[in-house]
Amino acid sequence: MRRGMVIDLEKCIGCRSCAVACKQHNAQPAGSWWNRVVTPGSDRHLTASTPENLYFLPIHCQHCNNAPCVKVCPVGATYQTDDGTVLIDFERCIGCRYCMAACPYGVRQFNWESSKDGMQRYEYQNNYTYGYPDPFRLDGRLVYSPVRIKGVVEKCHFCAHYQAQGLDPACVRACPGKARHVGDLDDPDSRVSQMIRQMNGFTLLPEKGTRPNVYYLPPKRKEV
């Protein structure tokens, strides 16, 4: 079993629901975005590029098979589960940020301050809380916690807490365009494997040799 995701860029409408759902469900501190959707070619994050270039690209942890972040972590806080998911043990991380230097996708987020200080800095209203309320441990290791301490690195954990309940990741469930699919990449008959095969699935930065478990399906040229 190799857990993978396929994102169909033709179906992506650029609404950023996945980024919002991800942030809310996973109680991400102010300023942290495990999941971002960019518009390649645009000057700024949210503005459109020239019309004929228009497509949207959601980017989060690619759960690489040959993950540089796992290899550089000096204490094994970042590790890979049997199904290929890359997780971070919040209680083990020493905050050296070597993994952030190592990751070619820029998906790792550091807690530069406590989440309480961050909420104040971003002027969230008092007592506003969000996110899945219970900490989640996988084989005893804390891979999700609604309250974050400062000084550790975090990133997409493939919604390990929902997976344990038989649910798809928050971004998959929240996508109104139904652009996201999860499944077993080792099974050639799985829906994700078929989509990759039939619709020219590709990965980001193949030249880096990271062999991601997140695949993209190319968008058609938009006619405007």
Partner: peptide
């Protein structure tokens, strides 16, 4: 980006 193959566009990162 599609349609402007000769430009190099950097994917921004959440500053945090």
């Amino acid at each position: 980006p599609l349609g402007s193959q000769h430009t190099l566009w950097s994917v921004p990162i959440a500053s945090g």
